[in-house]
Amino acid sequence: MNNFLDTSTKQSSVLWVIDGSLKDQLHKNARLKPAMELVKSGWKVRMITSGTPDDSEHLPITFMKIPWPNIYLFGVIGYYLKTISLLLSGKIKTDILFFQMDSFAFILLVIPIWQKITNKQKYRVVVDYRSLPMDTQSLKGKLRSAAFYLGVFITKYLDVKITAITAQLSEALKVRREQLIGLWPSGAELDDFSDCYGKRRWPEKNEPIRLIYLGVLTEERNLISVIKAAGMAKMKGTNLTVDIVGSGPQKEDLKKRVRKNRYDFINIHGPYPYHSVPDLLSQYDIGILPFPDVPKMNVSSAIKMFEYMAAGMPVLATRIQAHTNVFKDMEFVFWCAETPESMAKAIKKADRSKESLPTFGKNAKDYSRNWSWEKSAKELSIALRRITT
């Protein structure tokens, strides 16, 4: 606690409120990697979280753990109320209070409201937007979505600054130009994936191409089309295997479809721990990005898109704005529409391009240098400097 409250340094400082635990590996890397790069850029970084990473004592970041009770709705509200109490106590001094707008993070907007009422500005508040709500159908999804958009509404009418993952998300939320201080996309930790390309054994002429989807298993990801497309391609003589890896509410439905159609060349797996992902990707030839052309996908910046490239993999991707903005006209992409028929044609094209896959993979690996967490965090650092200098 004393170390967390230490203000002896004259460095510019940012207090990052995490929307949950940093023990979850994917969540951890999407937060810690940029934070580590901020430290390298000269920032003092402190994080409030409900669960600290196991190696926290070895990191140049200071953590404070606030409990998040496992009680739906009341747990998250309690977490943010305790955070607000700590911040309003005056015990913590920082240049910037920074947090992502998840469902109920809007509660933290009490801070700038209180500062406005009391005419005492202790914190420059920056709200970061990373996505639109995905689930808008279930009761929980509707509740989270309503809370998210309430936060958007309040943010627009407060004297706070905003960062976003993409320009498309900023436009979708109708962020005012004077509020937006910067964009910082997702990225990959290139060192984690540096050995993948060299470990991969590319398929010979008579061997199957190995495709993988790695991510969340939900209806919004268009995974049914992947299964249908693979079946169509197989019927037309394409030699392939497809592995769908991850967790989510659609997992059992995907398994049933595979069993029903007797697709023994398609496998559905549970999630892999993050530290095993580089080794996993080194066993496949092509990464799949099957997302449909809808706003909540087009405003995104999927981490797996960058990790496929960092692992030296060509990709099969739907031609949506979230993908074309990154890949542009790179030849290592097998483009398709979101329909099974179009995906099947792209799979067939990939199969005919076996001899070129190693070259495409090398090009993808080289191109990934433009999309590292280091570069992304530098954009975040530049954005935050705009309001501290």
Rank of each mutant, 00 (worst) to 15 (best):
S186N: 14
F265G: 02
V17Q: 02
S356Q: 15
R176F: 10
V216G: 09
K365I: 05
P34K: 03
R200G: 01
L81F: 13
M1S: 15
V126Q: 02
P203H: 02
I61A: 00
I303N: 14
K116W: 11
N363C: 10
K120M: 10
S138G: 06
R262H: 14
L240C: 03
A229K: 04
S194V: 08
S381F: 06
A167Q: 14
S282A: 15
T83G: 01
Q283I: 03
Y149F: 15
G75I: 04
G231V: 01
T52E: 11
S13E: 06
W68N: 07
V127W: 06
T388Y: 10
F193L: 03
L81H: 05
K199F: 05
M47S: 03
M101P: 09
T163W: 07
L357K: 01
R200D: 03
K205G: 02
F74N: 07
R31Q: 14
L139M: 12
V17N: 02
E189W: 07
K82L: 05
L32R: 00
D6N: 15
L97E: 02
G20N: 06
N3S: 13
V17M: 05
V245I: 12
G237I: 00
K33E: 15
I92G: 01
I212L: 04
A147D: 11
S170Q: 13
L97Q: 05
E355M: 11
I111R: 02
D253K: 13
L108H: 03
L97M: 07
L97F: 09
P67V: 04
S225T: 12
P278I: 03
D293T: 04
A30I: 14
S103C: 09
P208K: 00
Q283P: 04
L139K: 12
M134P: 06
Y308P: 03
R201H: 13
